[in-house]
Nucleic acid binder design. Sequence first.
DNA 1: ATCATATAGTGCGATATCGTACTATATGGA
DNA 2: TCCATATAGTACGATATCGCACTATATGAT
Lengths: 148, 148
Amino acid sequence: MNTEDKALFQFFNEIGIINQLSSALFQARLPDGLHVSHFAVLNHLVRLGDGKTPLAIANAFQVPKTTMTHTLAVLEKRHFIRMAPHETDGRSKVVFLTDAGRQMQRDAISSMDGPLRQMADDLGAELFTELLPALERVRTYLDTHRDM
Amino acid sequence: MNTEDKALFQFFNEIGIINQLSSALFQARLPDGLHVSHFAVLNHLVRLGDGKTPLAIANAFQVPKTTMTHTLAVLEKRHFIRMAPHETDGRSKVVFLTDAGRQMQRDAISSMDGPLRQMADDLGAELFTELLPALERVRTYLDTHRDM
DNA sequence: ATCATATAGTGCGATATCGTACTATATGGA
DNA sequence: TCCATATAGTACGATATCGCACTATATGAT
């Protein structure tokens, strides 16, 4: 492992730790025992629109479809989403947000408002905005090289 | 949620996705069904030295101590580590790497060599080295503001 | 139209993660 | 010394994640 490799290795190490710390932080703030993975799905549907198939959502998060089946079952039991049969594909389903689901997403977002603002104050929002383009490059690359 | 908050939110979103994608990538390459969390502990002990207590390791990864108990039990069953009583504190233990554990860490490292080099070639190693200082700032901040 | 193959979703079992409660030991003050 | 409190680790149960196998439906070739 040469110097370049070490840098990349350390990069993913930092990513992992930041993910762990920030997830724990968000988790502690989320209302009503909502899990981060549940919020992520609600947020995805709000941002990109609902009516997506379970498989499409699983692919978006790069998790196995069995995992998404479980997550969606929890969200449905809590009445944050509802599942309908797919219009043209009898094998498939489509996922819709309920009013309660949209409300929960808003509540979750605002529950994170405090920590986010604190971080922006302490570290400066530029730090994050400047990192974003590079992170997006890495993310896009990984997304298109899943079988590397 | 204002524009600054949105940038921070998107930042942590990117971090989460990159973590998911890179973990999946590493996981698929790790030898012998080794889990990423197991490798992380072995790697930690190699890099920072063994003889640490389970609690110290749990704190380093910011996971609950019960999680670390489980992880260490798996590593011990596989003979990658051994646990010894603490010299001066009867409540505590210390964790040591075995030769097999050190060997497994080396094998795991080299199993990731291919993808890492590929990424360095495709994206440029500078991309990662330039991001590192900022990421370290964020990580250190989160680490010292766990109860935010 | 038939059939081989691919795809969407689920059931099930294994493992990882985590919260709560418990035991054993340590520590500091009366 | 005695005791209240804090700390290290674990047992146990709940949930999340994931791989494998299965069913139902779709698609494409003949």
